[in-house]
Amino acid sequence: MSEEGEALVKIRDLHFSRGSNAIFRGLSVDIPRGKVTTILGPSGTGKTTLLKMIGGQLKAASGSIVVDGLNVGELSRNKLYDLRKRMGMLFQSGALLTDLSVFENVAYPLREHTDLPESLISHLVLMRLHAVGLRGAKDFSPAELSGGMARRAALARALVFDPMMIMYDEPFTGQDPISMGVLLELIQTVNTALGLTSLMVSHDLEEAMSISDYLVVISEGIVVEAGSPEQLKSSTSEWIQQFLQGKPDGPVPFQAPAPDYEAQLLGKL
């Protein structure tokens, strides 16, 4: 865990389950301010769920999530919306509104929450689009964009309100090497140039390792290991080593939990 005073997001003893399936069982983690933090973990460990809980879209069964001093679970609707205006979130699919052009998508939060004059909106939007390299695509509809471009457009939209923090949901999945490189570059420059906090969930190890300042590995609903990329690499945990090296079998078994194979084949069950 990092130094208490600097953490932007503090998660304490978080419990959450979906149906009978417990997703978090006492998760505690701090996300430091002004850094790129990545939450790593095998598929199905509830990484996206965690982002949704930080954004207040899902409520925890118990435990607390405090963002910039505000307990997300206890905020009134208006306060929560105020907090969300200070957070940006980049969804896996980009989540652009399909009935609006790229320009209108990026302008959307401004039009919703402010009464800025059209010329100023246009300025702000073009600035963000230029930063992600999509100024030339401003009149495209989201359907005409490639996956990588859609994510960049969504990033421009997430940035248009100058958030204090931005959350990325699996930003690298399904990207070709070039758009992967572009995204990596963007995430890093955005973080340093705008001085915001980046929180990413991913299972793309290499990319995550290369840009993150701080890594948190979660599995089975709790934090397994946390630290800088170097600390993680030198971890002695067998589990971490299996995860980092991508071995098919180890502490994380290849087989899903099942009754004894022999017994089942022999029909003894």
């Binding site: 949704k52 954004g55 879209q57 919306y81 105020d82 969300r84 205006k85 957070m87 940006g88 979130m89 969804f91 896996q92 699919s93 989540a95 652009l96 509104l97 399909t98 959307y108 939060p109 919703e112 929450h113 969504a154 939209r157």
Partner: peptide, 16 residues
């Protein structure tokens, strides 16, 4: 489809 493509979640996260 807006739900499936996370557009509804996206709106909520934009405080809309």
């Amino acid at each position: 489809l807006m739900k499936a493509t996370e557009q509804l979640s996206g709106l909520e996260m934009m405080a809309v």
